[in-house]
């Protein structure tokens, strides 16, 4: 039995590869449907993502995606699912976009405050879902998602009406001052990449080497066992959801302060970072290092998708299809996320 378990560890890699293979096959058929050449489409994805001169773009795209992957991975590590990343993301982004406008502070300090505020706001909003489960027994899986809709609606209202930049005709806030924007590193890359790298390293460290990481892993393996061992499940859920939401909020602020410099309605949600991040986290079953890898993979796929759409007229939404097929195949084949019975 234990020998089998050890073999399982060795064999774990291939199912992911098989899943990717299946996705590529199904995707190829879809490309044929649209009347294009699958090989050419895939070649464009690979070139668009991994050609040396395109790598910075891939990394730039990966910044929010890996961030949202980590946001999804933290609760997942403890057997919980946060489906409300969209709401936490827009709340953080709005705080990040508005704080430098209202706080008359020197640029870097305003930026730091904006990021901090964004993390806090996103975290508190996510923790609300956990509180709802502890206090009212509303399943977090559902409440986290439902809470997203009011957040998105209200933020959208604020950006269109009270906080709107009236000098333009678009639903967006005013530009943040130059000083409060995240410094550029190289090419399209800004400070946000480094922040995500640091967060990823921290999450991996906490997961592997700390008491809270251990307790969260044990909850993921068996929540009743963790409770029996003295883990306060309610407090832990609050903490995990707060961390998750804080990272999501921070990602929102990074997008605003690093690239768009203002909150543009709908611009944050149309790339569906939340869902790609959740899928990447599911792919690694919440293990943070693996989740980061999966997030990078999806980011490369999506960046390549832009090139494919440009060069071959195959719609880039194909990459979303590919991602979901990978997840579905693994969920069905490998018992991904299977609960203890």
């Amino acid at each position: 039995m234990s020998v089998l378990a050890n073999f399982g560890g060795v064999l774990r890699a291939p199912p992911a590869l098989v899943a990717i293979g299946v996705a590529v096959l199904v995707g190829g058929l879809l490309v044929l449907v649209s009347g294009a050449d699958p090989l050419q489409a895939y070649a464009q994805i690979v070139v668009g993502a991994l050609w040396p001169q395109n790598l910075p773009d891939t990394l730039n795209w990966a910044t929010p995606l890996v961030g949202m992957t980590l946001a999804a991975a933290i609760p997942l590590r403890g057997g919980m699912i946060n489906l409300g990343g969209d709401g936490q993301l827009v709340i953080g982004a709005l705080v990040g976009a508005v704080a430098p406008l209202v706080a008359p502070l020197p640029g870097p300090i305003a930026a730091a405050l904006a990021l901090l505020g964004a993390g806090l706001a996103g975290g508190l909003y996510a923790a609300l879902a956990a509180w709802g489960e502890i206090r009212f027994r509303v399943p977090m899986l559902i409440s986290s998602l439902l809470l997203s809709y009011p957040a998105v609606g209200i933020v959208s209202y604020l950006v269109r009406f009270p906080l709107r930049d009236t000098t333009t005709g678009l639903p967006q806030t005013a530009m943040v001052p130059d000083g409060a924007r995240l410094p550029i590193l190289i090419g399209p890359l800004n400070m946000g990449v480094l922040m995500i790298v640091v967060i990823a390293a921290l999450v991996v460290l906490v997961d592997r080497r700390t008491v809270i990481g251990y307790e969260l892993r044990m909850r993921g393996a068996n929540a009743r066992f963790a409770a029996y061992g003295g883990v306060a499940l309610g407090r832990q859920a609050l903490g995990a959801m707060f961390s998750s939401g804080a990272i999501a909020g921070l990602v929102g602020a990074i997008i605003v302060l690093g690239g768009q410099f203002r909150y543009i309605d709908d611009a944050l949600l149309s790339p569906a970072y939340t869902w790609s991040g959740l899928m990447a986290a599911l792919l690694a079953q919440g293990e943070p290092a693996g989740a980061v890898l999966a997030g990078l993979f999806f980011a490369a796929l999506q960046t390549g998708g832009f090139a494919m759409q440009r060069e071959t007229s195959v719609p880039r939404v194909l990459t979303l299809v590919l991602q979901s097929i990978v997840i579905l195949f693994l969920a069905v084949r490998g018992g991904l996320g299977k609960r203890e019975r």
């Binding site: 251990y214 892993r217 044990m218 393996a221 068996n222 009743r224 066992f225 963790a226 029996y228 061992g229 003295g230 203890e340």
Partner: peptide, 15 residues
């Protein structure tokens, strides 16, 4: 309740 079957003995015995 008493164990996490998906975790190793080291983790189980540390709880």
């Amino acid at each position: 309740v008493g164990a996490a079957l998906g975790a190793d003995a080291t983790d189980n015995l540390a709880m």
